[in-house]
Amino acid sequence: MRMLDVRPRSIAPAAAAASNRVRLDAVSKSFTVRGTHTPALQETTLAIEDGAFVSLVGPSGCGKSTVLNLVAGLLTPSSGVLTYDGAPLSGLNRRVGYMTQKDTLLPWRTTEANIAAPLELACRAVPRREVAERVRAMIDAVGLRGFEKHFPAELSGGMRKRVALARTLIYEPETLLMDEPFGALDAQLKLLMHDQLQRLTQARRMTVLFVTHDLAEAIALSDRVLVMSARPGRIRRAQDIGLPRPRDVFRVRFSPEFGRLHEALWEELKDEVAKGTDV
């Protein structure tokens, strides 16, 4: 809720630009490793409005994660300008919560201590009693009750993902970057997580940039789906998802509109997936 107070910035003169939480202007990224120049992301322009849920889908290695790393400030663009809230980004972007593909739980902390970690930092200084309450609520939300005292090494891959998700959501960052957060979960749990994520991001009006391989997941959750081409990536199609909110993530898949969108986006995606596999 506190995060919403940042909004008055949209009164700025360049109103159209300022209401974009994240904006990439002709941003490209390439890596040079041992003399070999590899373009990872072709010149890309995209804007994500404040409070929007945007998904990136595309074949492996198409630069989806590169986009997230750029927005998090872990990488700097090779060309072009990346602005966050209207200002060019320099250094780490502390206003995003980033759930990376790789597991970054602290191995010496239990489930509850890992989830509590962001709330213990001086920049938030949440009173201890409130921390305990919020951790408990979050553990219930991600279905980890009974595993509060377990260490990451004692949890399954899917459980660790959920701990990481809980740790990212608990401090309610204004922007969420998520890199295939639900890839390791079984189908039922995935749906439950979708429901949780939708509710939380809608209630808090979080901006979300969501990377996934799962087209159905992208459509069910997003306001817009960006289909990326095979490496070096570029945005091949941007599709607005007009499904009304709040959505029932369980039933939305059976609506005719969902089927139509899935069909259309799959047409775009399948050529790229075929191209991507022989890279």
Binding site: A72, L74, N93, V96, Y98, L121, Y171
Partner: peptide, 29 residues
């Protein structure tokens, strides 16, 4: 100590001191 852990804590808003106390020291114990 895994640099990704350090980075993750930095992104959450940890100061250098907090990174030292909460990641580096427990990590090297």
């Amino acid at each position: 100590v895994d640099r990704d852990l350090v980075q993750a804590m930095r992104l959450m808003g940890a100061t250098r001191r907090e990174v030292s106390l909460r990641v580096l020291i427990p990590g090297c114990l």
